[in-house]
Design a protein around this nucleic acid. Structure first.
Lengths: 136, 136
DNA sequence: ATTGACCTTCCAGTTGGTGGAACCTCTATC
DNA sequence: GATAGAGGTTCCACCAACTGGAAGGTCAAT
């Protein structure tokens, strides 16, 4: 199968598929004309990757998940470990964003948003006199 | 003031300060020895940038906020607009992550995490037979 | 004179692709 | 056989926002 068909089937752009080959995630064969020739298992892998990426797993996580996926002797503990780590990272990210959101929403709320220059948002961003001790 | 002192005062790494000069966010003077010489307003700006970045504003947002900050003829509407756009982007990001989190938490929960190979996480990532029509 | 803490520039790498240029191949049509 | 168009190929550059490191200059103190 050529890359265009694979792109359609896996839902990944052809560029991305070539990139995944570059970094060793898939190893399609080559036809006599130099075109990549994908087997069903390649397409299968790519679909797996697309789904894992959609869940936010890093490429390195994907690489490891793929390895486990293809290893009959894996343990579910190994898989779970990767997923739990990722879950923790997501939770942390959500916490960060939620805090930003709270501060920002507060400031936006306090800002009149009119023609005058006074703005609580800028006032908050501006360093307070005590934060930066002056000296040359 | 030399970059080391500025780094300490602004809370930004020296590397980052140099980078901010590179991309035109600050324009410190130079001493005879070639060292960067920061005025109080440079330090002020850098602290502003640090705070804006901590709230997740992009560098381009920061550039615009800084411009408004230094413009006596700004309107709070302009500032508010930037902040609201950013808030929207944050909300969208939180929504994405929250959805990922839900799926992932569900899968992690369903996974025994023991020595056996059966794993609902991998099962979910694997393409279902109907998703990929086979053909060579 | 030398040590060590600063400072300088420049180049490369990070993450996960994306866009474009220049060029080759295949199929269909005239 | 020529040609057009839709595929494919490689390679290089770029995005954000830094960060690490190498090679070297400067300064203050011993």
């Amino acid at each position: 199968m050529n890359i265009g068909d694979v792109a359609e089937r896996s839902g990944l752009p052809a560029k991305t598929i070539r990139y995944y080959e570059d970094i060793g995630l898939v190893k399609p064969l080559r036809s006599a004309n130099g075109y990549r020739s994908f087997r069903n298992r390649d397409v299968h892998k790519l679909a797996f990757l697309g789904r894992a990426r959609a869940l936010g797993f890093s490429i390195e996580d994907c690489r490891n998940l793929l390895k486990l996926y293809e290893d009959d002797h894996r343990t579910s503990a190994e898989v779970k470990h990767i997923a739990e780590d990722h879950l923790d990272r997501i939770d942390q990210k959500i916490a960060e964003l939620t805090e930003m959101r709270a501060t920002l929403a507060h400031l936006v709320n306090a800002c009149a948003g009119d023609h005058r220059p006074d703005c609580p948002i800028l006032a908050d961003l501006a360093p307070k006199p005590n934060e930066i001790s002056s000296a040359e």
